[in-house]
Nucleic acid binder design. Sequence first.
DNA 1: TAAATTCCTGACACCGGTGTCATAATGTCA
DNA 2: TGACATTATGACACCGGTGTCAGGAATTTA
Lengths: 337, 337
Amino acid sequence: MKKVTINSVASHAGVSKKTVSRVLNNEPNVSAATREKVLAVFKELDYTPNPIARGLAQNRSFIIGCLYDNPSKSYITRVQTGALEACKENNYNLLIHPCEFRGEALINNIEQLLQTSRLDGIVLTPPFGDFAELASFLKSKKIPYARVASALLQDDSISVRSNDEQGAFEITEHLINLGHKSIAFIKGHPDHSATQQRFKGYRRSLASHGIEFDERLVEEGNFSYHSGVDSARSILDLSPRPTAVFASNDYMAAAVLKLATQRQLKVPDDISIAGFDNAPIARHIWPGLTTIAQPVEEMTKQAVTQLILHIAQPQEQPYQVTLESRLITRESTSAIK
Amino acid sequence: MKKVTINSVASHAGVSKKTVSRVLNNEPNVSAATREKVLAVFKELDYTPNPIARGLAQNRSFIIGCLYDNPSKSYITRVQTGALEACKENNYNLLIHPCEFRGEALINNIEQLLQTSRLDGIVLTPPFGDFAELASFLKSKKIPYARVASALLQDDSISVRSNDEQGAFEITEHLINLGHKSIAFIKGHPDHSATQQRFKGYRRSLASHGIEFDERLVEEGNFSYHSGVDSARSILDLSPRPTAVFASNDYMAAAVLKLATQRQLKVPDDISIAGFDNAPIARHIWPGLTTIAQPVEEMTKQAVTQLILHIAQPQEQPYQVTLESRLITRESTSAIK
DNA sequence: TAAATTCCTGACACCGGTGTCATAATGTCA
DNA sequence: TGACATTATGACACCGGTGTCAGGAATTTA
């Protein structure tokens, strides 16, 4: 069985390969009759163009790269899901590239990646979207990129985010409305812009109720379960113990819940716990975690869709969108007794 | 800044592009002096070969595809981690392709995938590794593949697995040794070969202790958390209630734990719970789950490494390896009172 | 030292598409 | 019906590498 190439189609249809190429790409200036004839041969020979050859001629790979360095695996899974949907709809493929955010090596690493795979575009997931050097490096290499869940920037890029500050505000409001006044807070990874945003939302809510901010209630986490355990230990050792804990993501909240339960505390009767993200674990544990649902898949899908559009036809105007998040109340929070 | 290609290197070094190509690929028959000269120009011009052009010439893409359809996201994450390690070491890239296992469309879907991305090889993760039609289809297309965590087959393929039957046997032994005689079992997804294996291990252990197998203690799950909830409901409603539950993976075990806790049962005092896989959730909840640790990352890494070796130099002999799993005891199981 | 062998090297075609441009075919208008 | 514009088509170079093969240089052998 011989391979079917554009040449076999051309000779079969009695036209030049360029004409076949025109039909393939829906270019104008092909007569209806010729087009039909070629399309018929496509079917007859079961022809599909070779993407590598096409890539060479157009210097494209039809591959989008997804950059990540995130302690939360479930977050990555959700990012991938969204990116894959967008890719599928546009006949792109997704290359995944985990990569250390820290260190001098980052730019080299990315350069290496670009050299070995000729990506058409890159999705920057947290915390990469907030790293200005990387953005300007990509710009200098003329590699289009899109940022997901990063801070708002006044630039020309594609960026889809959700309102972390507002989400954190709302969940803190929820706790305050339940009567809590002593609410501990666990910060996320310092490299992530969401970390500052969520902290700001927490403080804004406190302030709006005239609750004095207490630094001793704040712990530094990094979004990993493990960091949640450490923070939980400090918080539960406080005296007086706070009546509620708001962790910057669900993993850390789950860690607080585990430690509290281990220490015979009843959640939410003895202490309320809230998380952020609505990760699967939030509903896989008992009590289920009150949290903020972020449309991670949708954000990524939109970002990648725009990125692919931009690749096909570079736009000058930016695409900056902020999607809504929403409060989900479960059993881990209740009114203070 | 002009693009650096093999031609610029050639003219810079005063040799033909073929000679440059020889240096690039470490081919013999290049004099030491020439080689040095070319290597110097590589550095001087900061040259890196274009993988797309190379791919076209050699009909290779340097991409491995990873096929999956698995309700357990954390399992997929672990598979990806292992596959990525192997790819990184060999300068390959990883394309991820989730895909419905069921339905006529599967083969078409894969055909489509191959046409649009020219994969050099495919990793088949459960349950794809057990689907004979797919294997023979890939064979007919001459696409090398490797199977991860699939049943043992007497064929010439690359396959890395762990001993599910033995793992299930050991964890059941553990429960029996703690004094349990009424041990409920939740099966996995019927398409996965691991499902039968784990069930067999469970029954072998019962039999070896002369405990009569009771069909009423067996529930049909599908590895998803949700199916675990359904199964848990049936099991906890049994009268008399079993003193232990062995779920075929940790997600389903976590569901049992949640439901049991919701119903005010103390784990492990009132009921012991064991899982399988050592997924992250097993240690993120309280009490932590007793489970079987499977080297998922290592299995996948070995499989992909072999696959890449096979692509570079097709081997005739099969590579079939079974890795060890091990029992991890946590707080969710204890001696019967 | 001549002949035979091995080692280097480059010219050229090729992988399977796309871009450019010249030219043939067709259509429009006066 | 001729002049001109428009549309359709193909020849050919090109993308950036690799494979084949011929021929010259270097080395070994007789």
